[in-house]
């Protein structure tokens, strides 16, 4: 779901503008009660995705999951109330998600994260430290492949002991080794004099 090399006109718009527009559209969609209008908007959202040259392959798994949930919603809502109601609800959700995909697929991860950090920046006044927030976010991403490696090692070791199918025998060492990695990383950061003092204060 990352904006992989999207260079369309949508990618050039500032992230804040797209995010704001999405918020406004989402609220607006709930005020529209007619399915005809929603069909028009759905086509509009699809045209937007097409015009931004989004690769629909990226959306495949997300769309399959969404459509499964929506078909469940459609059937139960149709049987409980009426079918027009069900259409309106399903079309609204589909349209909203299409607009959301249009924003997500044309905004780079960096730009989106920067926007979130801007939105969260007033938290500074209640004691949150922006440097620590950035450190936490980037470390979390860095730790994912590290944990995968640890998981494979632990599983191999427990396999040799005949414990590969015991969830506790894998999970407990995995958690403890993760905590060790965290301790080591924190010590390394301190040893290198990592200073997170808020320079904006």
């Amino acid at each position: 779901m990352i904006a992989a090399h999207n260079t369309s006109y949508l990618a050039k718009l500032p992230a804040g503008l797209k995010f704001g527009a999405l918020l406004a559209i989402s609220i607006g969609l709930y005020l529209i009660p007619s399915w005809q209008a929603l069909v028009v908007l759905l086509i509009g959202s699809l045209l937007l995705l097409f015009s931004a040259r989004v690769k629909f392959q990226q959306l495949r798994t997300a769309l399959i999951t969404l459509l499964l949930i929506l078909s469940f919603v459609f059937i139960s809502l149709g049987m409980q109330t009426n079918w027009e109601n069900a259409w309106v609800s399903v079309l609204r959700l589909l349209t909203m998600c299409m607009f959301a995909y249009a924003v997500s697929l044309t905004t780079t991860f960096d730009a989106m994260l920067e926007l979130f950090q801007q939105v969260a920046s007033p938290l500074r006044y209640v004691g949150a430290n922006p440097a620590q927030i950035s450190l936490g976010l980037s470390l979390a991403i860095r730790f994912i492949p590290e944990l995968k490696r640890v998981y494979l090692e632990v599983r191999e070791a427990q396999h040799a002991r005949g414990l590969a199918n015991n969830p506790l025998a894998v999970a407990v060492p995995l958690v403890i080794r993760s905590l060790r990695i965290a301790d080591d990383t924190a010590e390394a950061l301190e040893a290198r004099g990592y200073d997170s003092a808020d320079k904006l204060k």
Partner: peptide, 26 residues
């Protein structure tokens, strides 16, 4: 942190999902 990273677009949620649609969806 996971929710923020997923909403920002990383495919971190089960099945490789991510992006703003996840929050707006059902």
């Amino acid at each position: 942190v996971v929710v923020v990273l997923a909403l920002a677009g990383l495919p971190l949620l089960a099945g490789g999902r991510g992006g703003l649609a996840v929050l707006l969806g059902p």
